[in-house]
C-alpha cells in the first residue's frame, strides 16, 4: 500500500473536517476522492502531502509517517494543488528550471529536464513567455509539468481540471492518462463524476468527513440500479395507460421502465405500447451516472 491511513481526524475550531478516515491506496493505481465542497477532500490531500498535521489517527505515505517522517515523504511525492502554483512573473522555462534546481538537478541537467517537459506538455512555443500571459489550460499543464520534474512515485492532484474549458480538460485527462501508463500512482480529488469515471480505478466518495462509498465506477453505478427507458407521452393519462401494459413508474407524462439496454427489449416495449393504442412522443435510454450514485449516497448520508 502506497497510502494507508487509519482513523484520520482533523478539526478546525468546532468544525470537524475529517472524522476517522480510513484509506488504502495500492501502488500504481488511480484513486479519485469524490465529494461536494467541504467534504474534506483538500484536507485529506494536505495531510497526506505533509502540509497539514492531523489531529488524530495515522497516515503513512510510501511507508513513511506523514507527521514524523515528513522529509522522507516529500522526497517521494509531488503535489499539484487546487490553484496553479506557478510564478506568474517567471516564464514557463524559468519555473521548471527553478523546480529542477530545488530538486537537486545541476544547472545543465535542470535546463535539459525543463526542455523535455516543455515539449511533452506542448509548451515549447510559450516557453519564454511569462506565465501571466498563459491561458488557464496552459497554466495547469505547466503546474503538472512542475510536479513531474523529479518523477514522483505518488502524485497528488487536487481538482486538476476545475475551471477549465472542455478542450483543456480533455488535454489534462490525456496527460494524466500518460502518467498512469508510466506507473505513477495518482491520488486525485474531483467534484466531477465524469472525471472520476474516466480516470480512476477506484472511487472513494467522501461526505461530511467520512467515506460513504468505495469501489469501481461500475460497482458504484450498479449499486443504484441498471439501465432504464424513459418514454414521454402527450399527456399523463397516456403514460398511465402505457404503464398498465409495460410496468415501470410513471411521473407526469414520463414513464420509466427498467431495461437491460438491448434493442430487442426496446422493440418489445414500443410494440406493447403501440398495441395499447398509445402514441409515444420520445424515447431515451438512461444509464445511471455517477451523479445518480452521488446524489443517492449523499442524500442518505445527510
Amino acid at each position: 500500500m502506497i497510502v494507508e491511513t487509519e482513523g484520520l481526524t482533523k478539526r478546525y475550531g468546532s468544525t470537524t473536517v475529517l472524522s476517522g478516515l480510513d484509506l488504502k491506496v495500492a501502488e500504481g493505481s488511480v484513486l479519485a476522492l469524490l465529494g461536494p465542497n467541504g467534504a474534506g477532500k483538500t484536507t485529506t490531500i494536505r495531510i497526506l502531502s505533509t502540509l497539514t498535521r492531523p489531529d488524530g489517527g495515522t497516515a503513512q505515505v510510501c511507508g513513511f509517517d506523514v507527521a514524523r517522517e515528513a522529509a522522507a515523504v516529500r522526497g517521494m511525492i509531488s503535489l499539484t494543488g487546487q490553484y496553479a502554483a506557478v510564478d506568474e512573473e517567471q516564464t514557463g522555462r524559468e519555473n521548471l528550471v527553478m523546480i529542477a534546481r530545488l530538486r537537486g538537478f545541476a544547472r545543465p541537467a535542470a535546463r535539459a529536464r525543463a526542455l523535455e517537459l516543455l515539449e511533452r506538455f506542448g509548451l515549447t512555443d510559450a516557453a519564454d513567455r511569462r506565465v501571466r500571459t498563459y491561458s488557464g489550460g496552459m497554466r495547469r499543464r505547466l503546474d503538472l509539468a512542475m510536479s513531474l520534474v523529479a518523477q514522483p512515485r505518488l502524485l497528488f492532484l487536487d481538482e486538476p481540471t476545475t475551471g477549465l474549458d472542455p478542450v483543456s480538460r480533455t488535454t489534462m485527462w490525456d496527460a494524466i492518462g500518460d502518467l498512469v501508463r508510466d506507473g505513477v500512482t495518482i491520488f486525485l480529488t474531483t467534484q466531477y463524476l465524469e472525471e472520476a469515471d474516466r480516470l480512476a480505478d477506484r472511487i472513494v466518495v467522501l461526505h461530511n468527513g467520512g467515506v460513504v462509498a468505495d469501489g469501481t465506477a461500475d460497482a458504484l453505478k450498479n449499486s443504484v440500479g441498471g439501465t432504464r427507458l424513459d418514454l414521454t407521452f402527450p399527456c399523463a393519462e397516456d403514460a398511465l395507460r402505457a404503464k398498465a401494459v409495460t410496468g415501470g413508474t410513471a411521473d407526469g407524462m414520463t414513464l420509466s421502465v427498467p431495461s437491460d439496454g438491448s434493442a430487442v427489449h426496446l422493440h418489445r416495449v414500443l410494440d406493447d405500447v403501440l398495441a395499447a393504442r398509445v402514441d409515444v412522443l420520445r424515447v431515451s435510454t438512461h444509464r445511471p451516472t455517477l451523479d445518480d450514485v452521488f446524489t443517492s449516497l449523499t442524500a442518505v448520508a445527510a
Binding site: R46, L51, R74, G75, G81, A85, I99, L102, R103
Partner: peptide, 13 residues
C-alpha cells in the same frame, strides 16, 4: 496566499 508556498513546502527542501 497564492499556493506557491504549498508547492515549496511539499518538496524536500
Amino acid at each position: 496566499k497564492k499556493g506557491v508556498v504549498d508547492r515549496f513546502r511539499s518538496m524536500p527542501i
